[in-house]
Structure formats: structure tokens, C-alpha cells
Design a protein around this nucleic acid. Structure first.
Length: 576
DNA sequence: GCCGTTTTCGGCCCGACTGTTTTCAGTCG
């Protein structure tokens, strides 16, 4: 049942296969083998189930991209802490060469070349070789390469190809909407859309892509690079430009011919994996897909369309919502007309997690109520931290909520709480008090570094408590700041399903916890999801849409999300 | 190494850009 805590985590496994692929690439191995390892690494990294355990049980091959060879290597690594394949390559190649290969602009071929010809086996060696102008002695390399290498190595984060940091969706979305509006205002602009990871509502983005059609492309591009927010123009051509903004975004605009707008929007929305799978499938239908159109390889005929849905239709698919375009089964579903009818923001009726000045919130209860009502919420749960509601305070808050309900018009205010799940799994509010509340959210706020079995045990104990309605931010991660704690998520799901406890998708921009793969696994395990904001300020109530996007990326329908129901309907669904 | 509405073998997306080149390899998305 429960995963063996000694087994490696998915993140550790994924790293091994990424390293194996890198070393094999340096060794000149077959490119398709490499991409097989990289694909497997990506699937392992994002899997909600503990893949090492699956492999030991002989079930890892159920994951697409993992066959018997890779499963065997996972078992080997789980049992011995290493892989013979890795050891063999480490003997053959200096591991520092992997860092060299990751320097932007270099690659495996160049890294191998500088190693064999100049003995470069680390970033330090590389710097010296560039400084002493020895790189230009090699075929295909010149002074420009040395310049680029030195520039890349001078950056503070040396080594791994960091580039600009990934920006949270919560920061990206407002900029996306403003820029679309600013471009749309220009007289030469006909159509404009966001594309790329922002359009797919990925939790973070490295850059923000836009595409547009225009009666005068150079004029629209000029307007773009002249926007007040632009700090630096990185590239500026007649149909394409890249800029950075004062607040640290990298924006990319392409102006495209209107007749192929649909093809280009499809192409630039991605993801890469989605497009590769789409094109591979198309090849079997004797069709070649690119951003310029769909070419029939026999007749040579080129299909283009202004309409993205028509592009999918030509290939035999229903239009696929961008949030699903990750090659996680959406193509098969779209071919069969079996795509889920994804939940929408407008479906959500209530917000079941927020704080007020009764604990660490910055707005009063009345202010939160007014803001929630303005957003059209029909009910809200006030979930202040239990540790701040000791003694009479709980009663006083109850009175304030009762009074607010008296005044309230069209919104119901629920008495809730957010309890801490302590190290021993107990909660920081007595059961008889919890039983008197409308809604109980239980979360872990401490001891994140504990071993897997301890953290799993804490959650299982909380799930067993009849008064716990929902687990808040169940994996504890903070994007760019804190890894999720080590958890046997399968065991948590099984217990949540068994006890009828909900799990939260917390819509705070840096939490977005559960992640999509976890949310999807939850639904498949029969667990329902609450999407809530955990707002501490009035404007944070608007973050609900971020949670809904995350839910959509997890393939969730309206029925899968608890709080698309009226409060009486939610009440019936609860375990108590 | 993976995988199967042509396949258990023989395929495996498509194009742009860059730097270094007279026709292209390597890298990137």
C-alpha cells in the first residue's frame, strides 16, 4: 500500500535520467534514445504516483514513455542507488562536461569538441580557453563564440542554463491582458492574441508570446517596441520583435499573414510536446504540419485557416482548450470527441478559504464580505487560523459573522477555520469546537523536512478526523521558493477517497497546490476538489481564476469541483 | 528506447537563426 520511504522520489529519479541523457548525448548516442530518456524523465517528474514504487511493483510501464528497459533502470537505481549505465559513462566522460554543454549557445557537439581538442572538462577550463582565445582555433568556432561564452559565464548564476527567472502566472496574466489591449488599440492591428505558455495558463512563464495580424506590420511592431512599459528592445525586425519591460518581463510579438492566423496561433501556443505529437500523428495521414499550414504530402496542397479550430478539424480533432495541450492524452480524447467539459470561473459559486484580521488577514471581515459579494460569490468561508481564535475569541468571531449574515444581501458567510496539522497528526482545535463550525480546512504549516512516512502519517490522521472537510494546500510547495514536502500522495488520495474528504487547489499565485497532475490523479481516485483563494487581502479574492486555470490543466469538470455547487449541495456532499 | 487505425520492425516534427561558412552543422523553440 504505502510507498517505501527509502525509495527515491520522482524528482531524484528524473534527475538521473536527465543526466543519463546528457551523458549519452555527449557520448554521441542515437538521438532517439536520448529523447526517450528525456521524455521519461519529464513524465516521472510530473507524475503524481511514486514511480520508484510503481517500478518495483512492475507497473511503471503503464506510464506512457516508460518501457521495460527504463523500468529496469528505475528498479536498479532504487535498489542500489546507482545505474551501471551511468557509472560506465561517468568513467568515460568528465561530469563537468555536462555543465559545458548547458552553456547557452553551446551544445553536446561543441562540448565534446572542446574536450577532445583542448582538454576542457569544466566551466573553469572553458573560461580559460575562451580568455586565451583558444576556442577560435577549432573548426566552426570563432571570436563571437568566445565572446558569448565569456558573457554567459559572467552571469551570476553560472553553470545550469538559467536564463531569466520564470514568472508566476499571477504576475504574467495582468501584463498579457494589458498588452493585448494596447496592441489592439493600434489602427493597423486586426487581430491579436496571447500565445505560448501564458495562453496555456502554465503556472510560470519564461517569456510571453503574442501574435497578431495587421494591415501594416512594421507600424504595429514599431508601436509594440515603443510601448511605455518597454525597457529594452532585444530584437526588432519587420514582422517580429522581442523586448524586455521595466518590471522584468520578456515579450515577443510576431505579426503574421491573416490567412494562416489559425495555424500560427496553434503553433505558437504549443506546448512543444503537444505539437510534436500532433505532427507525428499527422505524418501517418500523409500530412505535414508547420506554422505555415498543413501540407498534403501527396498532392502538395496547403491548408491554411484564420481559425484555429479549423486547423484541428482538418487533422481530425475537436478544438482542444490550450490548458490541455501538454500531450497528456488530449489528442486521443479530441480525436474521439471525448475531451472533458472543463470547469470555468463562472461555474464557481463560493470561496471556501480566506482570512481576516481575526488572524493574519489584512482586511476586516466586513471588507472581505463586501469584496467577495462584488465578485459575485454566493457564499464564503472565513477560515482564520485556529491558533488565533483561542478562548472567547471564537465566540466573538461567531457573533460578528452572525451579524454580517443579518446584513448580508445575496451572500452567505460561513463559520470556518484553518487548523494546523501538528507533528503527531493532531489538530490545534478541539473536536467539539470543530464540530460546531460550518467548514474545516486542515493544513500543514510546519515540519516540512520530516521524512515521507511522518508527513504522510500526519495527513492520514487528519483525513480520518470526521470534522476535517478539506486538506489545504496539500503538498506545501511554494513556486520558486520551496519544494513540495515528501509525501506518499497515493496513500493520501486513497484515504481521502475512503473518508470522503476534499483536497484543495489553493489559488495563491505561488502555491497553486495541488498541481494539475495531482488534481487529475485525485479525480481518478474519486476525490473531489475545492478551488479556493486562501485570500489574506480583498484583492486576493480575484486569484480564484488562477485556481480554476490550474483545475482546467488537471482536466477537471464542473462536477469535479465541489464549490461549483450551492452551499446546501456542498453540505450534502460533505462527510459529516 | 518507445511504440503500433499501414508496423513486434523500422520508423521517430518542422522550421528559423547563428556563426561560420561558399553549402552547412549545431542549436533552439
Amino acid at each position: 500500500m504505502a510507498a517505501d520511504p527509502a525509495l527515491p522520489t520522482n524528482a531524484v529519479l528524473a534527475e538521473q535520467f536527465e543526466l543519463l541523457a546528457d551523458l549519452l548525448e555527449l557520448d554521441g548516442a542515437d538521438a532517439f534514445r536520448l529523447s526517450a530518456y528525456r521524455r521519461a524523465a519529464a513524465r516521472i517528474r510530473e507524475s503524481a504516483a511514486p514511480v520508484a514504487q510503481l517500478a518495483v511493483d512492475g507497473r511503471a510501464t503503464e506510464i506512457p514513455g516508460i518501457g521495460s528497459t527504463i523500468e529496469g533502470k528505475i528498479v536498479e537505481f532504487s535498489e542500489t542507488g546507482d545505474m551501471r549505465a551511468l557509472a560506465k559513462l561517468r568513467d568515460k566522460l568528465p561530469t563537468g562536461l555536462v555543465d559545458v554543454m548547458h552553456v547557452p549557445g553551446l551544445g553536446p557537439k561543441t562540448a565534446r569538441l572542446v574536450w577532445t581538442e583542448l582538454g576542457v572538462s569544466s566551466l573553469d577550463d572553458l573560461r580559460v580557453a575562451a580568455e586565451t582565445e583558444r576556442l577560435r582555433e577549432l573548426p566552426g568556432l570563432g571570436a563571437k563564440t568566445e565572446e558569448r561564452v565569456l558573457a554567459a559565464l559572467a552571469k551570476p548564476a553560472k553553470g545550469k542554463s538559467e536564463g531569466p527567472p520564470r514568472v508566476l502566472l499571477g504576475k504574467v496574466l495582468p501584463v498579457v491582458r494589458e498588452v493585448v489591449a494596447e496592441l489592439g488599440e493600434h489602427p493597423a492591428c486586426e487581430r491579436v492574441s496571447e500565445a505560448g505558455s501564458a495562453r496555456r495558463r502554465c503556472e510560470t512563464s519564461r517569456d510571453v508570446d503574442f501574435i497578431a495580424t495587421s494591415t501594416d506590420a512594421p507600424a504595429l511592431i514599431a508601436h509594440f517596441v515603443g510601448l511605455p512599459r518597454v525597457a529594452e528592445v532585444v530584437a526588432h525586425g519587420p514582422t517580429k520583435a522581442t523586448v524586455t519591460t521595466y518590471d522584468g518581463f520578456r515579450l515577443d510579438l510576431r505579426v503574421v499573414p491573416p490567412e494562416a492566423y489559425g495555424n500560427l496561433l496553434q503553433h505558437f501556443t504549443g506546448s512543444k510536446d503537444h505539437n510534436v505529437a500532433l505532427r507525428e500523428a499527422a505524418v501517418k495521414q500523409k500530412l505535414s504540419v508547420s506554422e505555415y499550414g498543413i501540407q498534403d504530402t501527396e498532392s502538395g496542397e496547403l491548408f491554411t485557416s484564420e481559425d484555429e479550430a479549423a486547423v484541428y478539424e482538418r487533422l481530425g480533432y475537436a478544438w482542444i482548450p490550450p490548458e490541455l495541450r501538454e500531450n497528456r492524452g488530449e489528442l486521443e480524447a479530441a480525436r474521439k470527441g471525448a475531451l472533458p467539459d472543463l470547469v470555468e470561473l463562472a461555474d464557481v459559486k463560493g470561496d471556501l478559504h480566506m482570512h481576516t484580521t481575526w488572524s493574519d488577514g489584512r482586511a476586516s471581515l466586513d471588507e472581505m464580505v463586501a469584496a467577495a459579494r462584488a465578485l459575485g460569490r454566493k457564499y464564503i468561508a472565513i477560515c482564520d487560523h485556529a491558533r488565533r481564535l483561542k478562548g472567547e475569541l471564537l465566540e466573538q468571531q461567531a457573533a460578528e459573522i452572525a451579524a454580517a449574515n443579518e446584513r448580508a444581501d445575496g451572500i452567505q458567510i460561513l463559520r470556518g477555520v484553518e487548523v494546523d496539522i501538528r507533528r503527531d497528526g493532531s489538530l490545534d482545535m478541539e473536536d467539539d469546537l470543530l464540530a460546531g463550525l460550518d467548514w474545516v480546512m486542515a493544513s500543514i504549516h510546519s515540519g516540512f523536512d520530516a521524512p515521507r512516512d511522518e508527513l504522510t502519517g500526519r495527513l492520514l490522521t487528519a483525513l480520518d478526523n470526521l470534522n476535517v472537510d478539506c486538506i489545504g494546500h496539500p503538498t506545501g510547495r511554494k513556486i520558486n521558493r520551496r519544494e513540495p514536502y515528501d509525501l506518499d500522495f497515493d496513500a493520501v488520495l486513497a484515504r481521502a477517497a475512503e473518508t470522503g474528504t476534499f483536497l484543495e487547489i489553493n489559488a495563491q499565485p505561488d502555491r497553486l497546490d495541488l498541481r494539475p497532475s495531482h488534481a487529475r490523479a485525485a479525480i481518478e481516485a474519486g476525490v473531489k476538489i475545492v478551488v479556493s483563494t486562501d485570500a489574506h487581502r480583498t484583492h486576493e479574492l480575484e486569484n480564484l481564476e488562477l485556481g480554476v486555470f490550474q483545475a482546467r490543466r488537471g482536466w477537471l469538470t464542473k462536477a469535479d469541483v465541489v464549490n461549483t455547487r450551492t452551499w446546501p449541495q456542498v453540505r450534502k456532499l460533505m462527510k459529516r
